[in-house]
């Protein structure tokens, strides 16, 4: 269990009241991750675990643990999860014939509950033919072009988000487990370099907020550790589901940095590196955040 800033609400309120009485405090403190448990359909998800050796963090926490209770609640039941209709969209697309080959995903992959189990948990995955790691989006599009003879989907399109949400949901509850050795090593290093490089007019790195200051408030936002185990996820700010690369892009724009290309090598490397920092956390696709 973590030792940092984990105080109960009454204790925190009392502390704030004390400080306020002394004329010091202005607002309630965030107090790190909360202690709530993520249980969906009776199954408990791993939202906290001791960080693996070599990690700069002591304890890993899913981003879910940094959200407030009303946001958390939306993920507890699939009927309340505003990202879940995307899963249904993906399920319909799964068996829909598309492209010149006259096939659907199901023509080769049959029942997604079996064939797609664990796929999201291993993404991005090394692709021997391409000679590089491929994200779930890239893998889907490669399959569409090569096997279905269909047009690739746009990264942030309703179809792509539906399919990544549907395929991702088949790994729900499974631990994130990306390959980090062999040919992935070079990509991991590249992602790490991006993670620690200060960019933009605000001159900040991913690490500045998500490693050094997670658990604290940055104005109205409660900083998480920046894990990617819930993507694609529903974000209330977007009012819809969105991809991990969209989130990377938005974060870079917030610090007034020119974002890397969605689907480009830099973001693929960053996806791999951020996924590796959260090894062992449960896949939550489609997660709910704010």
């Amino acid at each position: 269990m973590a030792t940092r800033q984990k105080t109960s609400l009454p204790v925190r309120l009392a502390a704030v009241a004390g400080l306020a009485a002394a004329g010091l405090a202005t607002v309630a403190l965030a107090g790190g991750p909360n202690d709530n448990k993520l249980v969906i359909d009776g199954k408990e998800y791993v939202t906290e675990l001791p960080a693996p050796e070599g990690s700069p963090l002591k304890t890993l926490y899913s981003g879910w643990r940094f959200r407030n209770e009303s946001t958390q609640a939306m993920q507890l039941d699939d009927f309340d999860n505003p990202g879940y209709p995307n899963v249904d969209t993906g399920e319909q697309l799964w068996s829909k014939v598309d492209g010149e080959a006259g096939k659907s995903c199901a023509s080769c992959h049959n029942d997604a509950s079996e064939s797609m189990k664990g796929v999201r948990a291993q993404m991005p995955k090394w692709n021997e033919k391409a000679g590089k790691p491929m994200t779930l989006e890239q893998t889907i599009n490669a399959c569409r072009e090569n096997n279905l003879k269909a047009k690739p989907w746009d990264w942030e399109s309703g179809q792509m988000l539906g399919m990544t949400a549907f395929i991702g949901s088949k790994s729900r509850g499974m631990p994130v487990k990306v390959q980090t050795d062999g040919p992935m090593k070079e990509w991991l290093e590249k992602g790490k370099e991006i993670y620690y490089t200060r960019v933009g007019q605000l001159d900040m790195s991913c690490a500045g907020c998500h490693e050094a200051n997670y658990g604290k408030m940055i104005r109205a936002d409660h900083l998480s550790q920046g894990h990617v185990n819930g993507f694609p996820l529903y974000r209330s700010k977007w009012q819809k589901l969105g991809s991990m690369h969209r989130r990377f892009k938005g974060c870079m724009q917030n610090i007034r940095a020119k974002p890397y290309e969605v689907g480009g090598d830099e973001f693929v490397a960053l996806e791999l590196y951020t996924a590796s920092r959260g090894q062992g956390l449960s896949v939550e696709t489609p997660a709910v955040r704010n």
Binding site: V199, G200, Q201, D203
Partner: peptide, 24 residues
Amino acid sequence: TLMPAFYRDSGYTRPLKDFEGKAI
């Protein structure tokens, strides 16, 4: 320090186009 420089207009890495060559 994490604190941005508020009066510096050069030397940034990948500044967004609208802010290039400008101080905050």
